[in-house]
Protein backbone atom coordinates (compact mmCIF):
# COMPACT_ATOMS: atom_id res chain seq x y z
CA UNK A 1 0.00 0.00 0.00
CA UNK A 2 1.79 3.19 -1.07
CA UNK A 3 2.04 5.44 1.93
CA UNK A 4 1.49 8.47 -0.23
CA UNK A 5 -2.28 7.90 -0.20
CA UNK A 6 -2.37 9.52 3.15
CA UNK A 7 -3.92 12.74 4.36
CA UNK A 8 -2.53 14.55 7.35
CA UNK A 9 -5.02 15.29 10.10
CA UNK A 10 -5.34 18.90 8.95
CA UNK A 11 -6.09 17.91 5.36
CA UNK A 12 -8.61 15.35 6.61
CA UNK A 13 -10.35 18.05 8.61
CA UNK A 14 -10.20 20.40 5.64
CA UNK A 15 -11.75 17.85 3.35
CA UNK A 16 -14.54 17.12 5.82
CA UNK A 17 -15.32 20.84 6.10
CA UNK A 18 -15.41 21.29 2.33
CA UNK A 19 -17.76 18.33 2.07
CA UNK A 20 -20.08 19.94 4.61
CA UNK A 21 -20.08 23.27 2.79
CA UNK A 22 -20.90 21.68 -0.54
CA UNK A 23 -23.69 19.59 0.98
CA UNK A 24 -25.26 22.67 2.51
CA UNK A 25 -25.01 24.73 -0.65
CA UNK A 26 -26.61 21.87 -2.57
CA UNK A 27 -29.46 21.31 -0.13
CA UNK A 28 -30.30 24.79 1.17
CA UNK A 29 -31.58 27.76 -0.75
CA UNK A 30 -30.09 30.80 0.95
CA UNK A 31 -26.91 30.17 2.90
CA UNK A 32 -24.76 32.90 4.40
CA UNK A 33 -21.34 32.78 5.99
CA UNK A 34 -20.86 34.58 9.30
CA UNK A 35 -17.59 36.45 9.12
CA UNK A 36 -16.20 38.42 12.02
CA UNK A 37 -12.60 38.83 10.97
CA UNK A 38 -11.67 36.38 13.71
CA UNK A 39 -9.38 33.40 13.12
CA UNK A 40 -12.13 30.79 12.91
CA UNK A 41 -14.10 32.68 10.32
CA UNK A 42 -10.89 33.43 8.42
CA UNK A 43 -10.44 29.67 8.09
CA UNK A 44 -14.09 29.27 7.04
CA UNK A 45 -13.64 31.79 4.30
CA UNK A 46 -10.63 29.96 2.92
CA UNK A 47 -12.54 26.67 3.03
CA UNK A 48 -15.39 28.29 1.12
CA UNK A 49 -12.96 29.49 -1.54
CA UNK A 50 -11.57 25.98 -1.85
CA UNK A 51 -14.95 24.25 -1.96
CA UNK A 52 -16.24 26.09 -5.01
CA UNK A 53 -13.17 27.09 -6.94
CA UNK A 54 -12.66 28.24 -9.60
CA UNK A 55 -16.14 29.75 -9.13
CA UNK A 56 -16.67 32.31 -6.40
CA UNK A 57 -18.50 30.78 -3.43
CA UNK A 58 -22.24 31.09 -3.95
CA UNK A 59 -23.27 32.96 -0.81
CA UNK A 60 -22.74 36.34 0.82
CA UNK A 61 -20.93 36.94 4.10
CA UNK A 62 -22.46 38.64 7.10
CA UNK A 63 -20.94 40.31 10.11
CA UNK A 64 -22.84 41.06 13.28
CA UNK A 65 -21.20 44.29 14.29
CA UNK A 66 -21.64 45.23 17.94
CA UNK A 67 -20.20 48.67 17.31
CA UNK A 68 -17.62 47.79 19.94
CA UNK A 69 -15.42 45.67 17.73
CA UNK A 70 -11.70 46.07 17.45
CA UNK A 71 -10.99 48.50 14.61
CA UNK A 72 -8.18 46.19 13.45
CA UNK A 73 -10.70 43.39 12.96
CA UNK A 74 -13.08 45.61 11.01
CA UNK A 75 -10.28 46.81 8.75
CA UNK A 76 -9.23 43.25 8.15
CA UNK A 77 -12.83 42.25 7.41
CA UNK A 78 -13.23 44.96 4.80
CA UNK A 79 -9.90 44.24 3.19
CA UNK A 80 -10.58 40.51 2.90
CA UNK A 81 -14.08 41.04 1.53
CA UNK A 82 -12.68 43.43 -1.11
CA UNK A 83 -9.99 40.97 -2.11
CA UNK A 84 -12.54 38.24 -2.66
CA UNK A 85 -15.11 40.51 -4.23
CA UNK A 86 -17.93 39.03 -2.16
CA UNK A 87 -21.01 40.78 -0.86
CA UNK A 88 -20.79 41.79 2.81
CA UNK A 89 -23.90 42.36 4.89
CA UNK A 90 -23.35 44.19 8.15
CA UNK A 91 -26.01 43.57 10.78
CA UNK A 92 -25.57 46.23 13.39
CA UNK A 93 -26.36 46.01 17.08
CA UNK A 94 -26.35 49.80 17.06
CA UNK A 95 -29.31 49.69 14.65
CA UNK A 96 -31.13 47.16 16.83
CA UNK A 97 -30.70 49.51 19.78
CA UNK A 98 -31.97 52.47 17.80
CA UNK A 99 -34.94 50.50 16.55
CA UNK A 100 -35.80 49.56 20.11
CA UNK A 101 -35.29 45.84 19.49
CA UNK A 102 -32.83 45.65 22.36
CA UNK A 103 -31.87 47.86 25.25
CA UNK A 104 -28.29 48.92 25.80
CA UNK A 105 -26.85 47.69 29.07
CA UNK A 106 -25.36 50.27 31.38
CA UNK A 107 -22.66 50.39 34.02
CA UNK A 108 -19.03 49.39 34.00
CA UNK A 109 -19.78 45.79 33.01
CA UNK A 110 -22.12 46.71 30.20
CA UNK A 111 -21.60 44.63 27.07
CA UNK A 112 -23.32 44.26 23.75
CA UNK A 113 -22.33 40.63 23.50
CA UNK A 114 -25.70 39.30 24.58
CA UNK A 115 -27.58 41.77 22.39
CA UNK A 116 -25.99 40.30 19.27
CA UNK A 117 -28.37 37.36 19.35
CA UNK A 118 -31.36 39.57 18.53
CA UNK A 119 -29.49 41.38 15.77
CA UNK A 120 -28.36 38.08 14.29
CA UNK A 121 -31.83 36.52 14.36
CA UNK A 122 -33.41 39.66 12.91
CA UNK A 123 -30.90 39.69 10.07
CA UNK A 124 -31.43 36.00 9.35
CA UNK A 125 -35.17 36.67 9.14
CA UNK A 126 -34.86 39.82 7.11
CA UNK A 127 -32.65 38.19 4.49
CA UNK A 128 -34.53 34.88 4.73
CA UNK A 129 -31.29 32.96 5.20
CA UNK A 130 -31.95 29.29 5.78
CA UNK A 131 -28.41 28.28 6.70
CA UNK A 132 -25.66 30.25 8.39
CA UNK A 133 -22.09 28.94 8.38
CA UNK A 134 -20.33 29.65 11.64
CA UNK A 135 -16.83 28.99 12.91
CA UNK A 136 -17.72 27.45 16.27
CA UNK A 137 -15.60 24.49 17.38
CA UNK A 138 -16.49 21.69 19.76
CA UNK A 139 -13.29 22.04 21.74
CA UNK A 140 -14.23 25.57 22.76
CA UNK A 141 -16.79 24.84 25.37
CA UNK A 142 -18.73 21.93 26.85
CA UNK A 143 -22.14 22.79 25.39
CA UNK A 144 -20.54 23.12 21.97
CA UNK A 145 -19.03 19.65 22.40
CA UNK A 146 -22.56 18.32 22.12
CA UNK A 147 -23.66 20.30 19.13
CA UNK A 148 -24.18 18.82 15.69
CA UNK A 149 -22.41 20.06 12.57
CA UNK A 150 -25.85 20.97 11.20
CA UNK A 151 -27.59 22.53 14.17
CA UNK A 152 -31.22 23.45 13.74
CA UNK A 153 -32.84 26.50 15.30
CA UNK A 154 -36.59 26.71 15.69
CA UNK A 155 -38.75 29.65 14.67
CA UNK A 156 -37.55 31.53 17.76
CA UNK A 157 -33.95 30.87 16.87
CA UNK A 158 -33.57 28.48 19.79
CA UNK A 159 -31.30 25.48 20.04
CA UNK A 160 -32.85 22.39 21.60
CA UNK A 161 -29.97 20.24 22.74
CA UNK A 162 -32.19 17.30 23.70
CA UNK A 163 -33.75 17.26 20.30
CA UNK A 164 -30.88 16.98 17.86
CA UNK A 165 -30.81 14.85 14.75
CA UNK A 166 -28.28 12.04 14.75
CA UNK A 167 -25.44 12.62 12.27
CA UNK A 168 -24.27 9.37 10.72
CA UNK A 169 -21.30 8.78 8.43
CA UNK A 170 -20.96 11.82 6.21
CA UNK A 171 -24.69 11.95 5.51
CA UNK A 172 -26.24 15.24 6.57
CA UNK A 173 -29.98 15.70 6.73
CA UNK A 174 -30.58 19.25 5.54
CA UNK A 175 -34.37 19.26 5.60
CA UNK A 176 -35.91 22.22 7.35
CA UNK A 177 -39.21 22.49 9.13
CA UNK A 178 -41.26 25.59 8.57
CA UNK A 179 -39.56 28.72 9.91
CA UNK A 180 -36.50 26.82 11.02
CA UNK A 181 -32.99 27.68 9.99
CA UNK A 182 -29.73 25.83 10.36
CA UNK A 183 -26.44 26.89 11.81
CA UNK A 184 -23.67 24.97 10.15
CA UNK A 185 -20.30 24.44 11.78
CA UNK A 186 -17.89 22.97 9.24
CA UNK A 187 -14.90 23.23 11.58
CA UNK A 188 -16.63 21.58 14.54
CA UNK A 189 -13.85 19.01 14.82
CA UNK A 190 -10.97 21.48 14.75
CA UNK A 191 -9.10 22.58 17.84
CA UNK A 192 -7.61 26.00 18.45
CA UNK A 193 -4.20 24.55 17.57
CA UNK A 194 -5.54 23.09 14.31
CA UNK A 195 -6.87 26.50 13.35
CA UNK A 196 -3.51 28.18 13.92
CA UNK A 197 -1.60 25.45 12.16
CA UNK A 198 -3.93 25.75 9.21
CA UNK A 199 -3.55 29.52 9.10
CA UNK A 200 0.17 29.01 9.13
CA UNK A 201 0.16 26.31 6.41
CA UNK A 202 -2.17 28.34 4.24
CA UNK A 203 -0.22 31.54 4.90
CA UNK A 204 -3.42 33.37 5.71
CA UNK A 205 -3.24 36.95 6.91
CA UNK A 206 -4.90 37.67 10.25
CA UNK A 207 -5.78 40.94 12.01
CA UNK A 208 -2.81 42.49 13.76
CA UNK A 209 -4.34 42.12 17.24
CA UNK A 210 -3.55 38.38 17.13
CA UNK A 211 0.10 39.34 17.41
CA UNK A 212 1.85 40.90 20.33
CA UNK A 213 1.45 44.66 20.47
CA UNK A 214 1.68 47.31 23.18
CA UNK A 215 -1.76 48.31 24.46
CA UNK A 216 -3.34 50.26 27.28
CA UNK A 217 -5.12 47.63 29.36
CA UNK A 218 -6.64 47.25 32.79
CA UNK A 219 -7.07 44.19 34.97
CA UNK A 220 -10.53 42.95 35.95
CA UNK A 221 -11.45 39.57 37.45
CA UNK A 222 -7.96 38.37 36.68
CA UNK A 223 -8.18 39.22 32.98
CA UNK A 224 -6.68 41.99 30.90
CA UNK A 225 -9.10 44.16 28.96
CA UNK A 226 -8.45 46.88 26.44
CA UNK A 227 -8.89 50.34 27.86
CA UNK A 228 -11.37 51.93 25.45
CA UNK A 229 -14.20 54.40 25.31
CA UNK A 230 -16.63 51.45 25.48
CA UNK A 231 -15.73 50.31 28.97
CA UNK A 232 -16.14 52.31 32.16
CA UNK A 233 -13.47 51.63 34.73
CA UNK A 234 -14.47 50.55 38.21
CA UNK A 235 -12.81 52.32 41.08
CA UNK A 236 -9.35 51.00 41.68
CA UNK A 237 -8.84 49.85 38.10
CA UNK A 238 -5.78 51.49 36.60
CA UNK A 239 -4.94 51.34 32.90
CA UNK A 240 -1.36 50.39 32.17
CA UNK A 241 0.70 49.51 29.14
CA UNK A 242 1.36 45.85 28.40
CA UNK A 243 2.55 43.68 25.50
CA UNK A 244 -0.51 41.65 24.67
CA UNK A 245 -2.20 39.69 21.98
CA UNK A 246 -5.71 38.31 21.56
CA UNK A 247 -6.71 34.67 21.31
CA UNK A 248 -10.21 35.51 20.15
CA UNK A 249 -11.63 38.52 18.42
CA UNK A 250 -14.93 39.40 20.00
CA UNK A 251 -16.64 42.40 21.47
CA UNK A 252 -14.05 44.68 23.10
CA UNK A 253 -16.06 44.82 26.28
CA UNK A 254 -15.84 41.14 27.08
CA UNK A 255 -12.77 39.84 25.23
CA UNK A 256 -9.63 39.57 27.28
CA UNK A 257 -6.07 39.89 26.04
CA UNK A 258 -3.15 37.71 27.04
CA UNK A 259 0.32 38.93 27.88
CA UNK A 260 2.47 37.76 25.00
CA UNK A 261 5.63 38.46 23.07
CA UNK A 262 4.56 36.42 20.03
CA UNK A 263 4.98 38.56 16.95
CA UNK A 264 4.93 35.87 14.24
CA UNK A 265 2.59 33.05 13.28
CA UNK A 266 5.12 30.46 14.33
CA UNK A 267 5.48 32.09 17.72
CA UNK A 268 1.71 32.15 18.12
CA UNK A 269 1.42 28.47 17.20
CA UNK A 270 4.15 27.62 19.69
CA UNK A 271 2.39 29.63 22.36
CA UNK A 272 -0.95 27.91 21.75
CA UNK A 273 0.71 24.50 21.75
CA UNK A 274 2.19 25.24 25.15
CA UNK A 275 -0.71 27.05 26.76
CA UNK A 276 -2.27 25.65 29.88
CA UNK A 277 -5.52 27.63 29.74
CA UNK A 278 -8.44 27.22 27.35
CA UNK A 279 -9.24 29.90 24.87
CA UNK A 280 -12.57 30.82 26.37
CA UNK A 281 -11.38 30.49 29.94
CA UNK A 282 -8.56 32.90 29.32
CA UNK A 283 -10.31 35.47 27.24
CA UNK A 284 -14.08 35.39 27.44
CA UNK A 285 -15.86 37.08 30.29
CA UNK A 286 -19.19 35.92 28.90
CA UNK A 287 -18.51 32.28 29.73
CA UNK A 288 -17.43 32.89 33.25
CA UNK A 289 -20.83 33.82 34.60
CA UNK A 290 -22.18 30.33 35.26
CA UNK A 291 -21.35 26.75 34.43
CA UNK A 292 -23.95 26.73 31.69
CA UNK A 293 -23.51 30.26 30.35
CA UNK A 294 -22.82 29.14 26.80
CA UNK A 295 -25.56 26.53 26.82
CA UNK A 296 -28.05 29.17 27.93
CA UNK A 297 -26.97 31.68 25.30
CA UNK A 298 -27.08 29.04 22.61
CA UNK A 299 -30.56 28.02 23.63
CA UNK A 300 -31.57 31.62 23.01
CA UNK A 301 -30.14 31.66 19.53
CA UNK A 302 -26.55 32.78 20.00
CA UNK A 303 -23.94 31.71 17.45
Amino acid sequence: MPTSYHLTHLRTLESEAIHVMREVVAEFERPVLLFSGGKDSIVLLRLAEKAFRPAPFPFPVMHVDTGHNFPEAIEYRDRRVDELGVRLIVASVEDSIRAGRVVEETGPRASRNGLQTVTLLDAINEHRFDAAFGGARRDEERARAKERILSFRNEFGQWEPQNQRPELWNLYNGRLRRDEHARVFPISNWTELDVWQYISEEKLAVPSIYFSHPRQVFRRDGMLYAHSEFVQLIEGEQPFQESVRYRTVGDMTCTGAVASEATTLDAVVAEIAATRITERGETRADDRVTEAAMEDRKREGYF
Partner: peptide, 22 residues
Protein backbone atom coordinates in the same frame (compact mmCIF):
# COMPACT_ATOMS: atom_id res chain seq x y z
CA UNK B 1 -16.85 15.27 30.01
CA UNK B 2 -20.35 16.29 30.99
CA UNK B 3 -21.49 18.98 28.63
CA UNK B 4 -25.12 19.81 29.19
CA UNK B 5 -26.84 21.01 32.31
CA UNK B 6 -29.26 18.07 32.30
CA UNK B 7 -26.32 15.68 32.16
CA UNK B 8 -24.63 17.27 35.12
CA UNK B 9 -27.87 17.31 37.06
CA UNK B 10 -28.61 13.67 36.35
CA UNK B 11 -24.97 12.63 36.47
CA UNK B 12 -25.18 10.83 33.12
CA UNK B 13 -24.10 11.31 29.56
CA UNK B 14 -27.13 11.66 27.31
CA UNK B 15 -25.71 12.48 23.98
CA UNK B 16 -22.68 11.95 21.83
CA UNK B 17 -19.92 14.23 23.09
CA UNK B 18 -16.81 14.87 21.10
CA UNK B 19 -13.38 15.20 22.72
CA UNK B 20 -10.08 16.05 21.14
CA UNK B 21 -6.53 15.34 22.04
CA UNK B 22 -3.27 15.15 20.28
Amino acid sequence: TDGLRAEREQGITIDVAYRYFQ
